[in-house]
Design a protein around this nucleic acid. Sequence first.
DNA 1: ATATTATTCGCAATCGATTGTTAAAAAAAT
DNA 2: ATTTTTTTAACAATCGATTGCGAATAATAT
Lengths: 348, 348
Amino acid sequence: MKKQKRTTIYDIAKKLNINASSVSRALSNNSNVSEATKKLILKTAKELNYKQNSLASNLRKGHNQTIGVVVPRINQNFFADVIAGIEEITYQKGYNLIICQSNESYQREVECVNALINQHVSCIIISISADFEDDRHLRNVLENGIPLIQFDRVADNLDTFKVLNDNEQASMEAVLHLIEQGYKRIALLEGPQNLNIFKQRKEGYLAALAKHQLPVVPELMKENAWTKELGAEATNELLNLPEPPDAIFASTSDFSALGVLEVATNMGLKVPEELGICGYSNEAFTEITSPSITTIDQYSVSMGKTIANLFFHEITEDKEVIIPKIVSIRPRLIIRSSTLKKNKTTID
Amino acid sequence: MKKQKRTTIYDIAKKLNINASSVSRALSNNSNVSEATKKLILKTAKELNYKQNSLASNLRKGHNQTIGVVVPRINQNFFADVIAGIEEITYQKGYNLIICQSNESYQREVECVNALINQHVSCIIISISADFEDDRHLRNVLENGIPLIQFDRVADNLDTFKVLNDNEQASMEAVLHLIEQGYKRIALLEGPQNLNIFKQRKEGYLAALAKHQLPVVPELMKENAWTKELGAEATNELLNLPEPPDAIFASTSDFSALGVLEVATNMGLKVPEELGICGYSNEAFTEITSPSITTIDQYSVSMGKTIANLFFHEITEDKEVIIPKIVSIRPRLIIRSSTLKKNKTTID
DNA sequence: ATATTATTCGCAATCGATTGTTAAAAAAAT
DNA sequence: ATTTTTTTAACAATCGATTGCGAATAATAT
């Protein structure tokens, strides 16, 4: 394909017999250009189909009206929603978004972050991948003078802006709800413990048990059960125990909870009467399974807005010193049929 | 925030008392630099935490190892999957992706496209928004020498690479399946007819009816019923007709089909015995509703790969003239419980 | 030891836009 | 008519990396 040459401000300048600087000023509408020539420049710019070269502009100006976002996967509702929230704000401010997915791979995450650093983005917003190893790449962001905002899955030891869910609180509420409904042996499906969010959810689970002096039973806690398939597998094992659980809290995701539901249904177990199920994230489908699944909503869209606003309000050029803030959002337990053992007849 | 100055090749050059050009050559590993100095340069580059400025590099080189993708929404499985497919290929080739969402707004779409043109991306991949008005912005892409690949929702009159689903064929198959199952009055939920994909699906519907000499009943065709809510609304109207349909083909989306299912369930209609339901897109939830929903799978991930490969194989600098290709993918009908009226007892 | 070839590296221009400074032109004031 | 002030626009440097070309140095051949 022939590499076509695009029209530059010099082309416009040459055609009008003026200097490129005037063209630049006219296009950016910055004083010092008479109305007459400005109009002329704008007209010929349109005629020649001029498009600004952002590369040159940003190089010269030393910054970039774009923000980089790195998430594990865009096809998870939580992340897609957060991005939607971020975009709502950044769009108003005239910023572009570069969205990257790490695919839960540390290697990819590092590469994404480096590419964003090279692009001189104004800010990097990240939720780290599942096989997170260390935070060198994130320190690098800061060392290169780029503001960093972490959300949801964060590197704990790194002092940056963070927007978090109160996972422990939410998790505890969920388990307290299960207990209140009369469930006695509550199993836990855990996520990768190198991610703090999953640790916190486990803490919440333990805290709830402790509150009611329920015993902590190790065989009721299944590690790394965070996909539908792994959730199903873990459920199989759990339900074949001599003393199977009467409720399963899939603290990892709703997908995992879905796996639980499928296995339970296949085994002929009645949900919620014989088995209570609680998921995490409020994926859209939790509302339409039968029974619908109790889960935890993380206010993802508004979380995205919070993140973006943090950038625009807290991280500005004029501030001499920036003290990273940590914003914690309290998720909301959404009680649906899958855990309503007690008043089964009234609701559902 | 203090705008920190980042180390450049000049900083490295100064420190080593050599010329910046050597640093550049060393970093890009391009001959003409002795092993000794190359090693030295690489070492100090690491020491000084050097990061290449892509803006400068791309400006000079005149191109950009990034591809822009514009989709209506990233939180629709179809698009998220296509993007995943694109990424799988582009990642291997060392290309970055800039993902933009138009939010189904023409205005936003134009802005996204312009931003990508300004960024001098190597290629723009787009699926147009629902309120598509005209293709001026897309012509602009071509006029600026940027290859354009349209997929799924395309502007018909524009001669570009296109990767399409054979919507008419898939739609016809779906309706033929309904007829074969014994449904006689099949309603159609249509999408915005300014998008060709929805026109084609309607064609397929009509073709299937014609094949079996079934009458075309205007009141059974509902326009613009493509969200869950609109689908539900349309279903309400349809089911309250003097002669209601015995099947509804939600050609717009699975979300719409979900609306149908909810209304039917609420009205106490048995699916599939009293009402057949067919959706479109194979969203994950269609498998887990009860009954599970018959739908059409569009091979979205492989579609994404096809798109990316088109760019790398067909659109290369060395080709003198590029003839846009149109690739058509034949979707697959996935038959599930919601339409299995005939052999209800055997399956489900 | 000298001539020839191959390596290695510096110089300077370039990509396209921005911007501080200065000069010229126009407008206003004397 | 002349001086002062204000507008307008040209000049030139700059952002950071790349690259053709030529010069200097090292390696090889004669």
